[in-house]
Computed example of a mutant assay.
Amino acid sequence: MHTSTRSAVLVQGIYKTFKKSQALQGIDLEVRPGEVMALLGPNGAGKTTLVKVLTTLIKPDSGNAFVNGRHVVDEPEKVRSTIGMAGQYSTVDDMLTGFENLRLIAGLRGFGRRGARRVADELLERFRLTDAAGRTAATYSGGMRRRLDLAAALVGAPPLVLLDEPTTGLDPESRLDTWEAVGELVAGGTTILLTTQYLEEADRLADRITVIDRGKVVAEGTSDSLKATAGQRLVLYVAEDHEIDPATRAAARATGLVPAVDRRARRVEAAVTDGRAALARALAALADEGVEVLEIGLHRATLDDVFLGLTSRARREAA
């Protein structure tokens, strides 16, 4: 059994089944100290189940998981003492002020009265909530509530913070506000395990990304390395509707694949593996078809392309 304390999180072959549903099917995962790891996957992929295992809320059926060197089943209290958690929904008490929420949590974390007040004041200042400290949480905006959630997760300065879909349901402005707050945590040296469905969120915040689907890891790496595995795409636009079909034939000849066509945008695109050579073939094929394009080029794959390719493939294999 490997119990290296060099890992903030170490997951080895975790399985978890609920009735007939296999939520986790042999998950392996490692999060290094000081990094942000994003767990990316569709609804039902197993992200939240894994977080519940790591926070000792549920026990795995088999396998091992260590958090800050502590076994989640054998040493649950020690695990909980070293983590902060912010879930999908706000956990603050609407009837209490921002200050009272943080003072309460500090008390539960073992701080005395004076220490709890000091911690609450420091965190309110850190997350730019000092002016709203005396207002009840019910009056906070979505972004302010999420910042208060993050502040609560940092009471006691835990070395690891788990964020389970922290921006679900937030408006764009509040989402940006939350991302800024997460960035401040990272700058302070906090290790973060983040689950999300938002591709932009993973792309922006994570040092590494683990893509899971149907309880299995289907890919892992940096955002750039994952994009590189998806290659490039040949994308072209035409001016007239009647040019779409000949342009599609030209793209098919150049790439050997069936292109994706957006008739409303008059856009044709297909994956390529040989970049410039495919572009040259496409230009020749378009000339043969007598089509003049408005725009043509090679586009780097996006995280959307990676995510959709990986998860759809995993679901086809499962089926």
Rank of each mutant, 00 (worst) to 15 (best):
G26H: 09
L108Y: 14
F127K: 05
L29E: 12
T222I: 07
T130N: 13
A45P: 11
L279H: 08
L294V: 14
L150W: 01
Y140F: 04
A265W: 04
S7L: 02
L54E: 03
T91L: 13
H2K: 12
T55Y: 02
L257A: 15
G297S: 12
Y89A: 10
S7F: 10
G107K: 12
V306R: 03
T196E: 00
A287T: 15
K19D: 15
T136Q: 14
D245F: 13
L205I: 11
G107T: 07
I105T: 07
V218D: 06
D262L: 13
A38I: 03
S62R: 15
Q22G: 04
A86P: 09
P42S: 09
F127S: 07
S90R: 08
G290P: 10
G41Q: 05
G290Y: 00
D171P: 12
F18I: 03
R313M: 04
L234M: 07
L170I: 03
A254G: 13
R208E: 08
T178H: 09
R266S: 05
E295Y: 12
G183R: 06
V119C: 09
K216F: 01
G275W: 10
T56M: 03
V92P: 06
V155P: 04
D241N: 13
V11Q: 05
G142L: 02
I27V: 15
M1D: 11
V258C: 08
A219H: 06
T167E: 07
I105N: 05
E220L: 13
T139L: 01
T168N: 09
V293I: 07
T91M: 15
R175N: 02
G309N: 11
L124R: 05
G34P: 11
V92M: 08
T139R: 09
L123I: 14
Q197K: 07
I83T: 08
R204A: 15
A250D: 09
K227Y: 02
Q22W: 08
G112V: 03
V9P: 04
H242K: 12
W179A: 00
F18S: 01
R175W: 08
A152W: 00
R267G: 09
L205W: 07
L160T: 09
L102M: 11
G63V: 07
R281K: 06
L57I: 14
P159S: 01
A137N: 02
